[in-house]
Design a binder for these strands. Sequence first.
DNA 1: CTGAAAGCGCTTACAG
DNA 2: CTGAAAGCGCTTACAG
Lengths: 348, 348
Amino acid sequence: MKSEDIARLAGVSRSTVSRVINNYQNVPEETRKRVMKVIEEYQFHPNNSARVLAGKKTDTIGLFIVSIAERDNINRIYRNNYFSPFVDAVIDSANANGIYVLVNSIYTIKDYEKIKRAFIERRIDAGIIVGTEKEIDVIADVVSMGYPFSIIDYSPEEVVHRIKKGRVAVINSTDDEGIHRMIEYLAGLGHRDIGILSGRMNTYSGRVRYEAYQKALKEYGLISKKEWVLKGEFIKKTAAQEVLKMINHGKLPTALLCCNDDMALSAIEVLQNEKINIPEEISITGFDDIMPASLVKPALTTVRVPLYSMAQKAVDEVLKMIGDTSDSLNIFNLETELVIRDSCKKIN
Amino acid sequence: MKSEDIARLAGVSRSTVSRVINNYQNVPEETRKRVMKVIEEYQFHPNNSARVLAGKKTDTIGLFIVSIAERDNINRIYRNNYFSPFVDAVIDSANANGIYVLVNSIYTIKDYEKIKRAFIERRIDAGIIVGTEKEIDVIADVVSMGYPFSIIDYSPEEVVHRIKKGRVAVINSTDDEGIHRMIEYLAGLGHRDIGILSGRMNTYSGRVRYEAYQKALKEYGLISKKEWVLKGEFIKKTAAQEVLKMINHGKLPTALLCCNDDMALSAIEVLQNEKINIPEEISITGFDDIMPASLVKPALTTVRVPLYSMAQKAVDEVLKMIGDTSDSLNIFNLETELVIRDSCKKIN
DNA sequence: CTGAAAGCGCTTACAG
DNA sequence: CTGAAAGCGCTTACAG
């Protein structure tokens, strides 16, 4: 079944069928109805390739999930607590707007070429990327070719610096405020020795969270001891090693601020294995508020990142940009929220 | 940049460029090299729509995630522990084979039409569906139109009954054996009063797990009391209500077999809120082995469903079927595995 | 081994 | 308001 068949059955030309499908105004109601009836009767849907080739949009956006650090892991992004809900949310939002989502995983630097390729092959109208570290070149390229992009968790300064023309949206959360509130909370509980289990510094959120920690400590007149600055890279295993090293090293801080929940969960596990009680002997905090955070014992005090809203925003912005060819650079910072649960304790 | 440009630059015709791209054998090595050089120099990739329109595959598969019962939930599949890893795994496997994945969520019966539409619009070569309940009509339709499909968690009998021609693969796990081993394990611990928190009976795995429970009880000479048969529908909230009802009703069983981990987690939460100790006062078991299962306290004894392998299998089979136009109906049952942790206790 | 040409199924400027 | 025709960028049977 093709538009020609519909045309014949409705007694019009293919042009008219096309006009009906594309909602042209200059089709008399009567004709439109006649054509629509045939279309519905035969459940006709135009061949997308033909439409695209003739100049229509693909009505598809590409979602690119970067997971380079995990590439040696057999399970790779499988079991990744952070990305999964994000993927779901993007699909959800896009589908709700009648837009298809082509999802791609990126495990190596070379995989970045897949992004450009998807555009050159004309498979997608726009892209959303999450998990990029410093590899923004391909994005800059694609954007300069005229394709819109939403970038999640990336330095706005760098985007401004690297991307001079085109359509981009940068979507972050207010991680600095989140960390600030957390330190404020811990300081309020009487903590003065607050360690940090930092994330990957190649990552925007990794840097922001770390810097916000340093800044907030100063603000509250606290000092960050070198042996309490642990480099966890956002990875459970690395985090576990760092925490174990700290335990073996000697004195513990009274609180350990972990830069994501995955690492916090890992820290809790290691500490409990070593018979160190949480929160009695050490308070632990996380960041992100992934699902298991509320399930562990003690339930994790953390900062909620509005992943779902961020995904929604990314989709909304990208769709807006598809509809408007003028250059634009929009930066969004969605609100984080302190979630107090049971992993921190007041001290004297 | 289009194939015509490449042709001009390489001093050949478009036909030859196309032959090079499509690996035709009758192109002399020298010519091939010359063309390839230009292609690489300009990073040329053929317009996919044009290729598809000319008769090539889309190199894209559609992944359809059904989540009808959750449609009133604001978060919908967001936070769904079961599907997320599956989605990741499918994307992973497909991408590794150079295949794109178009992911669609299905929340209403009407949404099922999206499946047919994706094929009619020629966006995908094949489909994978997960989460279907009784709605197999559209799949039967699409398969009879000649498109291959992998179906996850569905009754093989029903597929055989409903789909008479076409290419289908059904991928399940050996949930019956999983339940059997679990009952065997519980019986071995001395449990004689084993309740069940059942899943959704419209679901294949929901039925299999429930029936396997009944059968295993008989085998071990145990009886299933009516007030210990709880209908949880695979949903946390419903499960919580059922468990609470049981608690208020009076005597508890010594063990409660939950038909998925989500419900088990929910049960644990409710029981602990009511100051009922696990596993001292009641043993709890789950099914699936989702991530939080190992994180809760007590860590959940459960049955691992090989989701990653199932996703992989679904992709492999669908790709095979794309390459082979002969009718086929293949049924796979991947092995489940008993995972013993801390939520069950030996009794006298 | 290779090019000219037809054809895939649409859309849309053009002419009426 | 509407149809005939050109064009989108490929692939491939055909002819040489």
